[in-house]
Amino acid sequence: MTHNSESLLPSAAVAPPPTASAPGRKRSLQQRRARAAWVLVAPALILLFAVAGWPLLRTLFYSFTDAAMDTPEEYNFVGLANYLDFADGERFGVLADPLWWQAVGNTLWFTACSVSLELFFGMLLALLMNEKFRGQGLVRAAILVPWAIPTIVTAKMWGWMFHDQYGVINDLLLRVGLIETPLAWIAEPTLSMWAVVIADVWKTVPFMALMLLAALQMIPSDLYEAARVDGATAWQRFRRITLPLIMPAMIVALIFRVMDALRVFDLIYVLTSNSEATISISGYAREQMVSFQEMGVGSAASVLVFMMVAGIAACFLWINRFSHEGKEARE
């Protein structure tokens, strides 16, 4: 065993017989392990910095320039003009663009609607899967299908089902008698966002349900038996036992889903072709960047997207930490 002289020296200075000192040896082992740990983590950190961190900094840099997508090498600094600029009494920049604010509204609306519907249906589904019944394996296989289907395929499938003339949705609604004339789900601005939300909920409820189910299965069953003996109703059992115990897992699942919903792009891009009524903030930024070749403006929008998502994430983490501290204080 070759000892690293650097890590051995300080302990040797304090304790004269270096080989016999047990704490000294332990520390050097600890130190060597810590050093090796950095070497082991290094490739991952380097990759993350080079391909995620550095591009993020460059995006920030480009957001202060007027670079175009085809010639990113030629640029001039324009300060904050891509964000907001005043010229001749008029306002320019992303923050003055009504479409940006429309995209912000769309994204927040989409996130709020789809995540709350997912939570509701996911909870119902998890409670169902937590019951014992025959054919459970089949149902679990079935609910994994929407999760497994690629988002683009989901978008195309639902696009076809929402087709105004030949779509299945209109056909079913007509047969049941809920509507009298076919609806233009994709083209009608008031309906198109619902089409997006429905497709997204269909795809992501399984994820939510599986998360909640895993938490449900960790609740010891004697808690329910005790509550039943005490005469608690089903709702009381859910409200007083189930909900508090699965809360931590639920919050984590919620954070995952909110972060995911805030950066939605592919579903909307394919299902409604980024129409004004449904365009998301990610879609807006990419449209500026790629369709209009405005790398500077697009980067500015990207930075705003990043700040918005990071801000919401920070709020969540803060709330989560707050509730954790409260829990630890009680224990």
């Binding site: 591009p55 993020l56 980067s299 990207s302 990043f306």
Partner: peptide, 9 residues
């Protein structure tokens, strides 16, 4: 991370 945040970089 939203992917779009690193797109231009």
């Amino acid at each position: 991370f939203p992917q779009v945040a690193v797109l231009s970089g």
